[in-house]
Simulated scan of single mutants.
Amino acid sequence: MHKPIAIIGAGGHAAVIADLLRKTNRQCIAIVDRQDTSEVSDIHNAPVLSEEHFLARYSPNDVELALGIGSLPYQNLRQKVFERFVLKGFIFPALVHPQAIVADNICFGNGVQVMAGAIIQANSQCADNVIINTKASVDHHCHIHAHSHIAPGSVLCGNVSVGNGAFIGAGAVITQGVSLGNGSVVGAGSVVVSDVKSNTTVKGVPARS
């Protein structure tokens, strides 16, 4: 039997995660935000607790966590929060929307989130804390390293490697066999046809730095 889940964060991404939990019949018992409002959140009809209050009430034995903090280029708040709670012993289960299409032999790390309409094909891997966002398409043998975000509508063709903390903007296309370095950023709507170095931003058709 699954443990209940608390959502970390109370913004737009948290609302999407709350909907995913409802559709997968997972119980949300709290929203963890910066301040304790002592009110029930409209995100998931659950109380909003400060981190201090949450940790005083719940332990890793009681609850699992889902990150409701989104991921944007050039910032690593999501990664920092994930790592902080992992060090406290909490588990972030992989969450897959029932309207996603995921091949049988996919390897998911902790805290992976696969949103509605996403497709992940055979022999691909998603490491810890990866977001495969709405209607993103990941083809065969792709390797997406930790803390990366594949934004809505983006396409990864086969054998693509995405480095740690990379961000692929909405509607971008990464062609067959391309490697994106750690911390790289691909602008929305770009088409990437060659490898991208770490901590480099590319955009355009074809994408250039």
Rank of each mutant, 00 (worst) to 15 (best):
53 H>N: 15
54 F>A: 07
54 F>I: 11
55 L>M: 12
56 A>W: 06
57 R>W: 04
57 R>C: 02
57 R>Q: 11
58 Y>N: 04
58 Y>T: 00
59 S>G: 04
60 P>D: 00
60 P>M: 04
61 N>T: 08
62 D>I: 03
63 V>A: 05
64 E>H: 15
64 E>I: 10
65 L>G: 10
65 L>W: 04
65 L>H: 14
66 A>L: 12
67 L>M: 14
68 G>T: 02
69 I>T: 07
70 G>T: 11
70 G>W: 02
71 S>K: 13
72 L>G: 01
73 P>C: 03
74 Y>S: 15
75 Q>V: 13
75 Q>C: 11
76 N>T: 14
77 L>Q: 13
78 R>I: 10
79 Q>W: 14
80 K>V: 15
80 K>W: 09
80 K>H: 14
80 K>Y: 13
82 F>P: 03
83 E>C: 08
83 E>T: 13
84 R>Y: 10
85 F>H: 02
85 F>C: 01
85 F>E: 00
86 V>F: 01
86 V>L: 05
88 K>H: 08
88 K>S: 14
89 G>F: 06
90 F>P: 02
91 I>C: 13
92 F>A: 06
92 F>Q: 01
92 F>C: 09
93 P>Y: 01
93 P>E: 00
93 P>S: 13
94 A>Q: 08
94 A>I: 06
96 V>C: 10
97 H>Q: 05
97 H>C: 05
97 H>G: 00
98 P>T: 06
98 P>N: 10
100 A>T: 01
100 A>L: 09
101 I>H: 10
101 I>S: 14
101 I>W: 04
101 I>F: 08
102 V>W: 01
102 V>H: 00
103 A>W: 07
103 A>S: 15
104 D>P: 12
105 N>P: 00
106 I>W: 07
106 I>G: 03
106 I>K: 01
107 C>M: 15
107 C>Y: 11
108 F>C: 01
109 G>P: 03
109 G>Q: 07
110 N>I: 02
110 N>E: 10
112 V>R: 02
113 Q>M: 12
114 V>D: 00
114 V>N: 01
114 V>E: 07
115 M>Y: 00
115 M>C: 15
115 M>Q: 14
116 A>Q: 09
116 A>L: 11
117 G>V: 09
117 G>D: 11
118 A>S: 11
118 A>Q: 08
118 A>C: 11
119 I>N: 11
119 I>D: 01
119 I>V: 15
119 I>W: 04
120 I>K: 06
120 I>F: 09
120 I>S: 00
122 A>L: 11
122 A>V: 14
122 A>H: 13
123 N>V: 00
